[in-house]
Amino acid sequence: MRMLRFTLFLISLFVLSISTYSNSPVKSADKGEHLKYVIHYGIVRGGKASLKLKSDKINGKEVYHATLTGRTVGLFNTLYRVKDTYESFFDKETLLPVKAIRNIREGSYKRYNEVTFDREKNQINSQRSGIKDVPVGIHDILSAFYFARAYYFNSDLEIGQVVKIQTYFADEEFLLQFRFMGYENVNSKIGNVKCYKFIPIVQTGRAFEDEDDMKIWISADANKVPVRVQFDLFLGSLRCDLINFSNFSTSSLRKN
């Protein structure tokens, strides 16, 4: 069960950076973007994930509001019920977060926390742990991927390049790192898609044997949508696939 919790956490961590990129990295948020994913452990359907993006306001200021949910289904839900929700409210210009929410329900374990970001003082204020000093430009885990997609997921990427973004997650600083491995075509539910392939640098020994046991494919088009996430675990392979999307350029997702 600990492995399942850790795996679903990682799915929530990496199935995030969703929206159309042009001059504004999240230009079509006002339309109510929505992506849906299904999670399989071997041939067994184990969970689903969903992310919605819209415009919102905090203290009278217009921001983007991303909401990610991940939950178990079927047999997995019977054995160990998980429903996790992550929310990020981030600035439309800088993509830096103003507020982040983490609402975790995993079996009998429950955890809720809100974190606000003070950019002038370079501090965060956590409901659970209070005020802390943090590095300049720190992100929450959701805003980090929108930022990465806006500034790193493009033709300037070089094979072997490691993207690093400092985040604040689960009430501590967390260095997010992923390595670009080149381009690869993925045959998915939405068609044959040309993708950027990344390998997040993960901690070995807990659920992974090697650093490259997790892979993520992001469409190499205007949408830059996570198409597939795959985990090679001690007890087998787990895969998360995009199955549905709305308010995206449908034709550009498919490779000609």
Rank of each mutant, 00 (worst) to 15 (best):
R2D: 15
M3N: 14
M3W: 05
R5K: 14
F9W: 10
L10Q: 12
V15A: 15
L16Y: 02
I18R: 02
S22H: 05
K27Y: 03
D30Q: 12
K31C: 06
K31Y: 06
K31P: 02
G32R: 09
G32I: 05
H34P: 00
Y37T: 01
V38Q: 13
I43N: 14
I43Q: 14
R45M: 11
G46A: 15
G47Q: 05
K48A: 11
K48Q: 13
K48E: 15
A49V: 04
K52Y: 05
L53N: 10
D56T: 06
K57G: 00
G60R: 12
L68P: 03
L68E: 03
L75I: 11
F76I: 05
F76G: 04
Y80V: 00
T85K: 13
S88Y: 01
F90E: 01
D91W: 03
I101E: 04
I104P: 08
E106C: 00
G107E: 00
K110V: 05
E114G: 02
D118M: 05
N122R: 11
Q123A: 07
S129A: 11
I131C: 07
K132I: 02
D133P: 09
G137T: 12
G137Y: 10
I138Q: 06
I138E: 06
I141E: 08
L142Q: 10
L142H: 05
A144V: 05
Y146H: 14
A148N: 04
N154V: 07
S155W: 03
D156A: 11
L157Y: 08
I165V: 15
F169I: 01
F169H: 13
A170V: 08
F174R: 11
R179F: 05
N187I: 12
I190P: 10
N192E: 15
V193D: 02
C195H: 04
Y196P: 09
K197A: 10
F198V: 08
F198D: 08
F198I: 07
P200E: 09
P200K: 09
R206S: 13
D210G: 07
I216E: 03
W217R: 06
A222F: 01
V225H: 01
V227H: 02
V227M: 12
R228Y: 01
G236A: 03
N244E: 13
F245T: 02
S249F: 02
S249G: 03
T250A: 08
L253I: 07
